[in-house]
Amino acid sequence: MPVDQKRINGPESSVPYNIYIHSEIKNKGIQPDAPKRHDGRSNNELRNIFLKTGIISQAKGSAYIEMGNTKIICSVFDPREVPNKTGYCVQGELFCEFKFAPFSHHKRKMHQQDAEEKEYSLILQRALEPAVCLQEFPNFQVDVYATVLDNGGSALAAAIMAASLALANAGVPMFGLVTASTVGIYDHTYLVDPTDTEETFCCTKSVPGTVHNHGIIIQAALPQHGQISEMFVVGSVDTDTIVHSMDLISEAHKDICPLLEQCLVKTVFKTFRPNIKKTDTK
């Protein structure tokens, strides 16, 4: 691998210490049949969500989301001309960049975007595009940057929500808010809003020779219009399972959407209150 001249480089190869943890401690993980999950939730329960907008003063719009341990910060900037573009384009574009901070994952992430992050960037873009009135800024692109500070599972879904809040905060014309949620599937267990350990569990663990369902489904939707803006399945699941988890997810969307709305209402109040005070003093 070529040496990155623009950064301070450590040793050529290093290994995380977690892999040397004794295997007995490692595997105490997850029982799919247990009545409660390892963090005390029931299978259909979402984690608490904390939302805040306007967290980055330098950006046009920004949002911060916390779902359990997952922490994501997202910012949106003014439209700029699409670079390297010849000819006129009727629709504007969204440019999304999704990045895990190097320390956000249990395995250290490199500074350059890897294949997973590139894929997630594309998913983020496709999840948001149906919600943004792209015809309002022809030939221009809006930049959306999402950075995962701490990955506690369901990072992509949280990033989609943060990005939609940031877009709304930036005043980009939109058809509606985008919500997203994740379901982890293991056999007949559906884990809504899985944590990172549950995610890896659902993704990799499978008894060879059996036909267990396992996988992860992420769905982004515009709940105000009842439309699905992005669907992402990975694993090995049959169509009935997908249909069932879509029902679960749409339930979750109904719970999440008011939270985002409330957060935006609060932002509006916050932007107007200081003005009111100022006029009072005048």
Binding site: I8, S13, S75, K99, H111
Partner: peptide, 26 residues
């Protein structure tokens, strides 16, 4: 993380500070 040290300073660890001014911040 764990690594093997450099041959010339065998008892020194590494510290690798990197600052990222990502497009997110400005």
């Amino acid at each position: 993380e764990l690594a093997t040290p450099k041959a010339d300073i065998p008892d020194h660890g590494y510290i690798v500070p990197n600052v990222e001014l990502s497009p997110l911040c400005s």
